[in-house]
């Protein structure tokens, strides 16, 4: 596993990362409640425990880089800068949602942020990211394409086809695997003959490393480094972020496949508690700071809920809009 270089941490940097992770955590906890109240329907995959990956990665990327995500992408969308209100409105299925109520939790889009959607077919986003990277290469851009996916995707053919193509054509793609150890309920070692995901990328001659996905600094630093190498060399890279999902796979998952003790052990090394402990130990943050950040995040989430509640529904007459592109007059 690639270790962080231990660059000095500043109060401003530390609090900013903590603030972003708390925003996501607070958003997800509220979604959990809203699902119980039937305000949100469909599939809901919460990101609790994995916040460091989205926050560290997005901070290390440029606004002009392209992002392709998965169905567990609330955290990616929020960390990318999509307004929480638009994300919440999308979960409500409202017209003001970031996909006008057509996508829901698994399909958040914001073209202005170059956020090309959560993709709900495991590994289905990888070829698209490869194509975005191809467009960047052919248009001589210095931007890169970043694709989030889980450990489950590594078993899919599209993972292997995409890595091969990106390496063969030396495309500026960063493959960001969020290895939370379970593909729904199937543990990595029960599904894959080689569980070292970085090693599988190296088989395609792709620069790859495993990173402590619970350490937001390590995530940020590794993504910044990989992104710089990609911009410089043009070729792809893969980072395996070792993380853990604290909540169930989805709202329908009784979690028969893992022990409570395992979850508790991971929660003790969760990304928010780890960062909080570190910042306090370094004397960069007080409990008051933490409370303030949490209050601010909570207020922002409540404001997003109010926005979603008061937003209009997309008119049913418009159901068939955007099936085909609306041509310019």
């Amino acid at each position: 596993m690639r270790a962080p270089t231990g660059a000095p941490v500043t109060r401003e940097h530390g609090l900013e990362l903590l603030r972003e992770m708390l925003r996501i955590r607070c958003f997800e906890d509220r979604c959990y409640q809203l699902y119980g109240q039937m305000k949100i329907r469909g599939f809901l995959h919460l990101y609790n425990g994995e916040e460091a990956v989205a926050v560290g990665a997005m901070r290390a990327l440029r606004p002009s880089d392209a992002i392709v995500s998965t169905y567990r992408e609330h955290g990616h969308a929020i960390a990318r800068g999509i307004a929480m209100s638009k994300v919440m409105a999308e979960l409500y299925g409202k017209q003001t949602g970031c996909s006008r109520g057509r996508g829901g939790s698994m399909h958040l889009f914001d073209a202005s942020k170059r956020f090309y959607g959560g993709n709900a077919i495991v590994a289905g986003g990888l070829p698209i990211a490869v194509g975005l990277a191809l467009a960047q290469k052919l248009q001589r851009e210095s931007d890169i394409s970043v694709c989030f996916f889980g450990d489950g995707a590594v078993a899919e053919g599209e993972f292997h086809e995409s890595l091969n193509l990106a390496s063969l054509w030396q495309l500026p793609a960063l493959f960001l695997c969020e290895n939370n150890l379970y593909a729904m309920g199937t543990a990595l070692e029960r599904a894959q003959s080689e569980t070292d995901i970085a090693a599988r990328a190296r088989a395609y001659r792709i620069d790859a490393a495993a990173v402590d996905g619970m350490d937001v600094f390590a995530v940020e630093e590794s993504v910044r480094g990989a992104a710089e190498r990609i911009r410089h060399s043009g070729g792809p890279a893969l980072l395996e972020m070792r993380t853990y999902r604290f909540r169930a796979h989805s709202m329908f998952d009784p979690q028969l496949y893992r022990d409570k003790a395992e979850i508790e052990a991971w929660q003790k090394k969760g990304p928010i508690i780890t960062l909080t402990t570190r910042l306090k130990a370094l004397g960069l943050m007080t409990e008051d700071d933490y409370q303030r950040l949490e209050r601010e995040a909570s207020a922002e989430v409540e404001s997003a809920v109010q926005f979603a509640e008061s937003s209009p529904w997309e008119p049913v007459e418009d159901l068939e809009r955007f099936v085909y592109a609306e041509r310019r007059a």
């Binding site: 990888l126 194509g131 191809l134 467009a135 052919l138 248009q139 394409s145 599209e158």
Partner: peptide, 10 residues
């Protein structure tokens, strides 16, 4: 898929 992505990319 790369064709789809390249189309998204302009």
């Amino acid at each position: 898929g790369a064709g789809i992505g390249a189309a998204l990319g302009g």
